[in-house]
Simulated scan of single mutants.
Amino acid sequence: MMLALALAYAVAPLATDMYLSALPRMMNDLGTEATGVQLTLTTFMVGLATGQLVIGPLSDRWGRRRPMLAGTAVSALAGVLCALAPSVEALVAARFVQGFSGAAGIVIARAVISDRAGGSGAARSFGVLMITGGVAPVVAPLVGGALVDPAGWRGIFVVLAGIAVLMFSGVLLLVPETLPARLRRGGGLVTTFRSMGGLLSDRGYVGYTLAYGFGFGVLFSYIAASPFVLQNVYGLSTGTYAVVFAANALGFTSTSAVNRRIVGRFGPRRLLRTGLTVMVTSCALLCGLATTGRLPLPAAAALVFVAASSLGLVAANATALATVRAPHAAGSASALLGALQYGLGAVVSPLVGLGGESTAVPMTVAMLTSACVAFCGGVLLTRGSLNPGAIDAS
């Protein structure tokens, strides 16, 4: 079951990172500017955010399996539409559908784990998802870089459609229903929004959600700008860019694996604070060097690697600490986490392009801003806040 959930959870990094190295080529093929192809990333993130807000609460009402199966099926169809898109406008629309439907795998995977575990057990299970979410960015740019010459960017979307079919099969065969009918929430949209409002009035939940969402905001700032910064500013080839990108994803994956092994000993709150401290420090150094014009490639690569690796301590622990506060509405709690995460990704993508394609400053400013908000949420806002039912929340 965890393997199937992990594969479904991987839809976002796969559909985001596999085609990054092809963005400059897409810009030429579709006759658009850099902002045009970056919009395909933005709308995908918007789809992921809104999809989670809709599908997460629905899974509290209808159960986990049906929405997850429907979402992965539509995601496969959307991948085909992306491959056939005749214009950048059509591609943008298809990417929104791909993101909205693919959100089912992400939001419900978290909810299924919340149905079955809490405390350090949940943190370890969420760690499996984070490891998969880290492995996928390692594999995705390498596969995309290998496919872009023989198959073109359209061939990459055909491969993504095939992966969605595999995800559907995994959910169908391996993921049981984890929310019994007696525990499902009725009452329609009014009850759903009331439940979400209750979560937003919980200072601890909000703090952990900010840490999670803006922690990923650091990563999305890098993802959106890195094809142009590394290839245009530093002159890396497509293949070298894919290797550098994969190395950062490997750092995130490795730290997630370490976190999974030590969370029972140190507790999720302590590890979360450590990760946030490292993240904000590395982003501050990166931004300072970039704004003063003294950011050579080795320093940039090392600091981005440290920032990406620190996310391995942030993501799983913030997720576990947030969702344990809402055992009565795991789907809604998961939805708000994911909506902030990918909503920020949608906002960040066009913002980092405003400074043009010849400087790393917009990317580093966005990374530092996100890291500061994540730190304030996860460290300051949650101070003195205890998680109900979490034996190791301290």
Rank of each mutant, 00 (worst) to 15 (best):
146 A>C: 03
70 A>C: 05
125 S>L: 15
243 V>L: 15
156 I>S: 03
176 P>I: 00
346 A>T: 10
36 G>Y: 03
17 D>L: 02
96 F>D: 01
116 R>G: 12
270 R>A: 15
67 P>C: 05
284 A>L: 14
114 S>L: 00
56 G>D: 09
367 M>C: 04
225 A>V: 06
52 Q>M: 12
32 T>A: 12
214 F>C: 13
382 T>E: 04
285 L>H: 00
229 V>Y: 11
309 S>R: 03
171 V>A: 08
94 A>M: 04
357 E>Q: 13
374 A>G: 09
332 S>K: 03
125 S>N: 12
27 M>T: 14
130 M>F: 11
83 A>C: 10
132 T>L: 00
96 F>M: 05
138 V>H: 06
59 S>I: 10
284 A>D: 01
145 G>F: 08
114 S>I: 00
237 S>W: 08
304 V>A: 13
379 V>M: 01
140 A>R: 01
22 A>D: 06
354 L>H: 05
88 V>Q: 13
341 Q>R: 07
68 M>S: 02
30 L>E: 10
300 A>I: 04
229 V>F: 07
264 G>R: 11
299 A>H: 04
158 V>Q: 02
284 A>M: 07
349 S>M: 06
201 S>W: 01
33 E>T: 15
265 R>Q: 07
22 A>W: 09
85 A>L: 01
233 V>W: 11
209 T>P: 04
287 C>H: 03
